[in-house]
Design a protein around this nucleic acid. Structure first.
Lengths: 119, 119
DNA sequence: CAGCTATATATCGACAGTCGTACTATCCTC
DNA sequence: GAGGATAGTACGACTGTCGATATATAGCTG
């Protein structure tokens, strides 16, 4: 099974659920925190992703609750979802490592042939 | 300047160009090698990406050549392109690290409360 | 020499995931 | 009682990728 690319919002939905069940709005807050404010999940994106991830078996519904008169839909990561997140993390770490290696070889090359900077 | 998400094919186009100028088809071969065969850039994706990246100033045309009767269009990474690739690599490495931390805390939690596995 | 593979680029419709926006509804604070 | 935070629903628009088709040259095989 070859893992295809996972988009950043989707990735953070899974990452957010990785340490326990959460409800939709809670995921948004948590993802923002987890990414140091970089990722702000849009509601449309979130619920679309949750539906898709459920149909793929990576996320499961984990009970609805009514708190202070408002509905909360809880979700949790499945074993398959945790495995996918682990795969994706590995892929990204490896890609980043490869790109950095290339960039450092570029730095050496450019420094080694100064005339290449201004042809 | 907040960096937005970069898709995997685009990322590998930049990564491939990071160690020197290449022509389109050469990028495809190189990206496949660089990713251990995981990424096979489609021609449509590649040339669309190259045009887009040029208009964004991340990639520049680096001369056309005719080799064995066939046209070769060469491309190179700009300084801005190298910076974007570095940013993107850092982002991915950090995301992967955060996700792994979450996953390990999950493993501890699940191991620590076995009844949670079969509710 | 016909057919296939590899090299090399161009183009285009279809699709998936995200964005942006608007909507409903409750609770709390100023 | 206006505004903001919480919580979810719905939908059209946009962007990058995919898949397929096309053109052309070179080299190999039957």
């Amino acid at each position: 099974m070859t893992t295809t690319e996972m988009r950043e919002p989707t990735f953070f939905v899974l990452a957010s659920l990785a340490d326990g069940r959460k409800h939709g709005y809670g995921i948004i807050k948590d993802a923002a925190e987890l990414s140091d404010g970089r990722v702000s999940l849009k509601v449309g994106t979130l619920y679309a992703a949750l539906e898709r991830l459920q149909s793929e078996g990576l996320v499961a519904a984990a009970g609805d609750e009514i708190v202070a008169g408002r509905l909360r839909r809880y979700f949790e990561l499945t074993e398959s979802g945790a495995a996918s997140l682990a795969d994706e993390s590995e892929r990204q770490a490896l890609n980043a490592q490869r790109a950095r290696a290339r960039l450092s070889s570029r730095a050496i090359r450019v420094a080694g042939s100064p005339q290449a900077v201004t042809p």
